[in-house]
């Protein structure tokens, strides 16, 4: 039931945005993910909120794709895990909204104006992967110490000192 619903939502988004959708990953019982172009992120997010009722973000994940053998490249993927609490029909589903950014200069618009729940999650992705979220009200370090001067630790080029 959940997966049929997610399939319908993905098809609807693809129809509404056409070329702005770069791709999708739909694996039943595993993940439902829609990959959008950077420029269209805010519009797709607003569409998902207003039309489909995804009212909060459960988390924001950043993935450094540079060492991934299949489907990798010099990108950082930022994934928003969207959920719904107000709509009981949708409460059992998580939709992933993803955008691929340039590894050298990762910049994207913040979704704070649409979902205030992203505030601390976006700060964490900034902290751990160095992604700049434009329009975020207070983008600064959250988990690492303020004096951290090394490269962001969740990038693949960062090695834990003393291991490997």
């Amino acid at each position: 039931m959940t997966w049929e619903k997610l399939r319908k939502i993905l098809d609807d988004v693809k129809e509404a945005f056409g070329e702005d959708i770069e791709g999708e990953v739909f694996l039943e019982k595993k993940i439902a993910k829609v990959i959008v172009k950077k420029e269209a992120l805010v519009e797709v997010a607003r569409y998902l909120k207003d039309r489909h009722g995804f009212d909060h973000v459960k988390g924001v994940t950043g993935v450094d794709l540079s060492r991934l053998k299949e489907g990798g490249g010099p990108f950082i993927e930022v994934i928003y895990h969207l959920g719904s609490l107000g709509d009981q029909e949708l409460a059992d589903s998580i939709l992933n909204l993803s955008v691929k950014l340039d590894l050298e200069k990762p910049m994207v618009s913040s979704l704070f104006s649409i979902w205030p729940s992203v505030e601390y999650h976006e700060r964490e992705v900034y902290d751990m992967l160095g992604v700049i979220f434009e329009g975020h009200p207070d983008l600064k370090r959250i988990l690492l110490p303020e004096y951290w001067m090394d490269i962001p630790p969740l990038r693949k080029e960062y090695k834990i000192p003393g291991r490997e």
């Binding site: 988390g59 994940t61 993935v63 991934l68 729940s117 964490e124």
Partner: peptide
């Protein structure tokens, strides 16, 4: 959220804990 590249360890493992979501 876990990404695997077929080896003996995760390529990326992301844990979203409930406490972190209580901050706002």
């Amino acid at each position: 959220y876990i990404v695997s590249d077929g080896t003996d360890r995760p390529y990326r493992l992301r844990m979203v804990t409930p406490s972190f979501r209580l901050l706002p």
